[in-house]
């Protein structure tokens, strides 16, 4: 049972959502945008958060759109992860979302919620980072479209009252050769020790990681090392590990040393799997 009380609003357009959010803010109600609500409910239940109001975005058509338009795949931020995986329109994103929590909860967790949540792994960001995706954002000054990597740096950065409406991916990225690996400590359903996503674009490998550091990331330094044709596989991996933006996490899921071991092994397998494409 959620001990705090909050008000519930379900707007039907981006403008209505933003205006409602602004009005609730003016009234001092500490509003939160609400997608699937899994994190809001579970955190409110133990009083980690106490929103005065939630603004449910599932009534906004733009947030529920899924389909191709002008050779671009448009994915609404309020779509549940199972809707994306079942559609099979973007297999790599389907795989990444298909390993977040469990299957039933994937029907409730939304793409926007996974990206904007406080849990550090945000695994659906990985395909978006390597595929040069765009983000469509509604805010007090209207709707803007920006590169996803511009607003997602370790986590999603939005201005006050802004709302992620959609993600756009160019069609040419949807069926590229890819690898998705999620390594967990024990059971299948757990936070990642390491999640790796790799694609080959223009004969170069692009990679993004979650669980390795305290945030998801794509590193051009790591990619540079792994794509260097003058190095052996071992040398590439050595250089990639040296080029990580921070030391690996050292926590209850795994030591930094073990994470590095898993990373090295996973990189080796990834290079082998994608051999011939790059």
């Amino acid at each position: 049972m959620i001990p705090c009380n909050f008000e519930y609003y379900m707007p039907e357009s981006p403008e209505e959502a933003v205006e409602t959010f602004l009005q609730l803010t003016r009234e001092g109600k500490n509003p939160m945008y609400y997608g699937g609500g899994t994190e809001i409910i579970s955190m409110a239940r133990v009083s980690n958060i106490t929103p005065g109001a939630v603004v449910d975005i599932k009534g906004i058509p733009e947030c529920n759109f899924l389909g191709l338009r002008d050779n671009q795949l448009i994915i609404g931020a309020a779509l549940p992860l199972t809707a994306i995986s079942e559609s099979q329109v973007f297999p790599l994103l389907g795989k990444a979302g298909g390993r977040v929590a469990d299957h039933t909860i994937q029907r409730k967790i939304t793409l926007g919620g996974n990206l904007a949540g406080t849990i550090i792994y945000r695994e659906t960001s990985l395909p978006l980072l390597v595929c040069d995706s765009q983000a469509v954002i509604a805010g007090p000054h209207g709707i803007r479209q920006v590169p996803f990597s511009e607003i997602f740096q370790q986590r999603l950065y939005l201005q006050p009252a802004e709302l992620l409406l959609q993600i756009i991916i160019d069609r040419s990225y949807l069926n590229l050769p890819y690898v998705h690996v999620k390594k967990v400590k024990q059971d299948k359903i757990d936070y990642p020790l390491l999640t790796l996503v790799a694609i080959v674009k223009d004969q170069r490998i692009r990679l993004a990681f979650s669980g390795l550091l305290a945030y998801p990331f794509r590193s051009l330094t790591v990619e540079e090392a792994l794509n260097d044709p003058h190095l052996t596989v071992k040398e590439r991996i050595d250089r990639a590990v040296t080029g990580l933006p921070a030391p690996p996490l050292h926590d209850i899921l795994g030591s930094a040393g073990y994470r590095e071991f898993v990373l090295r092994d996973t990189l080796k397998n990834t290079l082998s799997t994608l051999e011939g494409y790059y």
Partner: peptide, 10 residues
């Protein structure tokens, strides 16, 4: 028709 954990739905 889809399974949902009713503790995580308002």
């Amino acid at each position: 028709g889809w399974p949902v954990k009713s503790c995580l739905m308002l």
